[in-house]
């Protein structure tokens, strides 16, 4: 702990602008959802949020490169990123919790099994199954068929798992000081991430056009899109992060023993990968 050198920025306009941008984005998102108008402002809001992040992180990068940060600051970033990922884990935990609850409790109860099986009184024709192709209500049309885990999802699993490996190789290379190797493996990681997103896009298209898996298709569609959708969003964010890291790597920002941004991005990517494995198992396979 070096005495007296903890860097405290005097002031910054990004946080306040950031809140304003978040506010604009959220309010106009609400307007789009409720009144069907405001898409323009929502876009402006989104761009503003991204711009603020850009400038804010740029300041941080600058300060870091000016050597204003010490080891203690590095630890602050580490704790910060670590707890942030923990919060993300809890966010997905809520969704997985919902999935398990519906599968182990609600659906069997609606079908007349278990402690609350009397519920089947209301749904005499309903039989529980997972994937749920025949939701209890007459007005809810279930999916025609579900995606086989052993086709596109398996491909995607391979993409993501290998991307975690390539990223680790890249990181090791960086630590060894092999910049070019690190760069190549990072590009590979990014490419795998983009492939993942493309395949997921194809899968969504298929889901809507061929399988009848839609948001309205009862709880199967709901949980399917909730989990894969938010995961996909996180892959997108992770991929953007990797792209930025690549740019910074190319500009020579990282040294073998000082590259926390890279590590943070890698943590995030691994986290997204682990979530996918959970998804693959519980959304697709079982």
């Amino acid at each position: 702990m070096s005495g007296g050198s903890y860097y405290v920025p005097a002031s910054s306009k990004w946080p306040a602008l950031g809140s304003a941008a978040v506010g604009l984005m959220m309010v106009s998102l609400g307007a789009v959802l409720v009144h069907g108008q405001g898409a323009l402002f929502m876009t402006i809001g989104l761009v503003a949020v991204l711009a603020v992040m850009w400038f804010w992180f740029r300041d941080v990068v600058k300060e870091s490169r000016q050597g204003l940060y010490d080891a203690q600051m590095d630890r602050s970033f580490r704790w910060g990123m670590g707890w942030f990922i923990f919060s993300e884990i809890m966010f997905f935990a809520a969704f997985f919790g919902a999935l398990f609850y519906v599968r182990t409790f609600s659906l069997p109860w609606l079908d007349g099994e278990g402690a609350k099986g009397v519920a089947s009184l209301l749904w005499p024709d309903f039989t529980a199954s997972w994937p749920l192709l025949n939701p209890p209500g007459e007005n809810v049309v279930g999916p025609l068929e579900v995606v086989s885990p052993w086709q596109l999802p398996l491909v995607n699993t391979i993409f993501l798992i290998s991307s975690s490996i390539t990223l680790t190789i890249s990181h090791e290379a960086l630590k060894e000081g092999h910049r070019a190797t690190a760069r190549n493996w990072l590009i590979g990681t990014l490419a795998l991430g983009v492939c993942f997103l493309i395949v997921q896009g194809i899968e969504y298209y298929e889901a809507y056009t061929h399988y009848g898996i839609t948001l309205e298709a009862g709880i199967y569609g709901s949980t399917f899109f909730l989990l894969t959708g938010f995961h996909g969003l996180h892959v997108t964010i992770g991929a953007i992060t990797l792209a930025v890291l690549l740019a910074r790597l190319l500009k020579g920002h990282f040294t073998p023993d000082d590259h926390f941004a890279f590590e943070a991005g890698a943590w995030y990517w691994h986290f997204v990968d682990v979530v996918w494995i959970g998804l693959f198992l519980f959304v697709y396979v079982f």
């Binding site: 959802l33 919060s87 993300e88 809890m90 966010f91 997905f92 935990a93 809520a94 969704f95 919790g97 919902a98 519906v102 609600s106 659906l107 609606l110 519920a119 209301l122 749904w123 749920l132 939701p135 209890p136 209500g137 007459e138 007005n139 809810v140 948001l215 309205e216 009862g218 709880i219 199967y220 569609g221 709901s222 949980t223 899109f225 909730l226 938010f230």
Partner: peptide
């Protein structure tokens, strides 16, 4: 984050026709 998750599910039930909290959809 769990609160964020549950209100997101509400948002989807309200605006996108999902059935997290509706028995008719399971």
């Amino acid at each position: 984050p769990v609160l964020a998750g549950v209100i997101t599910m509400m948002l989807m039930d309200i605006n996108f026709g999902t059935s997290f909290f509706t028995a008719a959809g399971g």
